[in-house]
Amino acid sequence: MNADALPDARSGALADILGAPVVGLERLTGGSSREVWAFESAGRELILLTDPPGEQRGEGAAFEASVLRAARAAGVAAPEAVAVVPGGLVLERLEGETVPRRVLDGLSDGPKLARQCGEALGRLHTVDPGAIAGLPDEDRLVEYRATLDRLDPDRPVLELAHAWLMERQPVHRRKTVTHGDFRLGNFVVDGGGLVGVLDWESAHRGDPLEDLGWIAVRSWRFRGPGVIGGFGDVEDFLGGYRAASGIDVSDADFAWAVVLGTWIWAVGCLQQADRHLSGKTRSIDLALVGRRVVEVEHDLLGLLR
């Protein structure tokens, strides 16, 4: 099937599933791991997320829909999962900005957004992991250690950071539903702050510190001055988290979480490069991300004290 025929074919299939005509199916820019299509049906603005050719993930859409429903039930701002379709997921389209630099440039109240992000995570981390069928149980410190050993075990900075993490790993750890990629770029923001959290495909049962530190990784600040996403302070973020979850996070635990997130992203850069170099997904973007590992190693050296 040629590219021009693809939207028409998808429109017909979507209309059959949704029980209403599909109008204006158009592929949007953005979406590093999935294709994003916008359309209208029965008077609603909707989004179709589909896996790229050759990377279909089976029941991933149904799983993501179940996570979204559990998160929304807990009060997390997130789009409604409208329908699971072959190879994809239909969501309501949230109005607002998602491009990080545009969010930062247009933001009028960074402290408010930081607190809202903390509240969203706090609510998510109260969800019972057993309520979501098929939720994987992951320890990213263990899993990314194995990935590093496989891809490039001779990187002194990453070895030093891993040793630091192991030596200072918090003793009293809990497992919650975690988003897995909670950061600027996966938020919809408008003049009132956080409209919704996107991209739930990496959700799992894991250490909540993974989410808490990830938003503060320097790479996800997009040159903004705030430690939290480039826009906010740690105090506002953790205050929102505490208010929504009833759980306090110590300074030492948060510092550990930021090192963990930065180390994970460094290994993730190597992983992205491997996807390109192995031929699994040939992409100049993936290759460029792989070259950024040295930047992240520099960030790690500044964090290790």
Rank of each mutant, 00 (worst) to 15 (best):
L25W: 00
L28Y: 04
L28P: 07
T29P: 03
T29A: 15
T29F: 09
T29E: 10
G30N: 12
G31S: 05
G31D: 02
G31E: 03
S32E: 13
S32I: 04
S33D: 05
V36L: 14
V36H: 09
V36C: 10
W37H: 03
W37N: 06
W37P: 00
A38K: 09
E40L: 02
E40H: 04
E40P: 01
E40F: 00
R44L: 00
R44W: 00
E45H: 05
L46Y: 01
L48W: 00
L48Y: 01
L49Q: 10
T50V: 06
D51T: 11
E55C: 04
R57T: 07
G58M: 01
G58A: 13
E59C: 11
E59L: 08
G60N: 14
A61E: 03
A62W: 08
A62S: 10
E64T: 09
E64G: 09
A65C: 02
A65R: 09
S66D: 09
L68E: 08
L68P: 02
L68G: 13
A70L: 03
A71D: 03
A71P: 06
A71Y: 01
R72K: 14
A73F: 00
A73R: 12
G75D: 06
V76L: 09
P79W: 03
A81R: 08
A81V: 03
V82E: 04
V84E: 09
P86Q: 14
P86H: 06
G87H: 07
G88A: 11
L89Q: 10
L89H: 07
L89W: 04
L89I: 02
V90K: 07
V90Y: 05
L91F: 06
E92M: 11
R93C: 09
R93T: 06
E97V: 05
E97W: 05
V99F: 10
V99P: 08
P100R: 15
P100F: 04
R102M: 15
V103K: 14
L104F: 05
L104M: 12
G106W: 02
G106Y: 02
S108W: 08
S108R: 14
S108N: 14
S108H: 13
S108T: 15
P111Q: 08
R115V: 14
Q116N: 15
Q116R: 13
E119L: 07
E119K: 11
G122M: 13
G122F: 03
G122T: 04
R123G: 14
R123C: 11
R123Q: 13
L124E: 04
H125S: 07
P129S: 06
P129H: 03
G130N: 05
I132R: 10
A133V: 02
G134W: 01
G134T: 00
L135E: 01
P136C: 06
P136F: 01
D137P: 00
D137V: 03
D137Y: 02
D139H: 07
L141R: 11
L141S: 08
V142Q: 13
E143M: 10
E143Y: 02
Y144D: 07
Y144N: 05
A146G: 11
T147F: 00
L148G: 12
L148Q: 09
L148T: 03
L151M: 11
L151C: 09
P153L: 03
P153R: 12
D154N: 15
D154I: 04
D154V: 10
R155P: 04
P156E: 08
V157Q: 15
V157C: 09
L158E: 12
L158K: 13
L158A: 06
L158M: 13
L160R: 15
L160I: 05
A161L: 06
M166E: 12
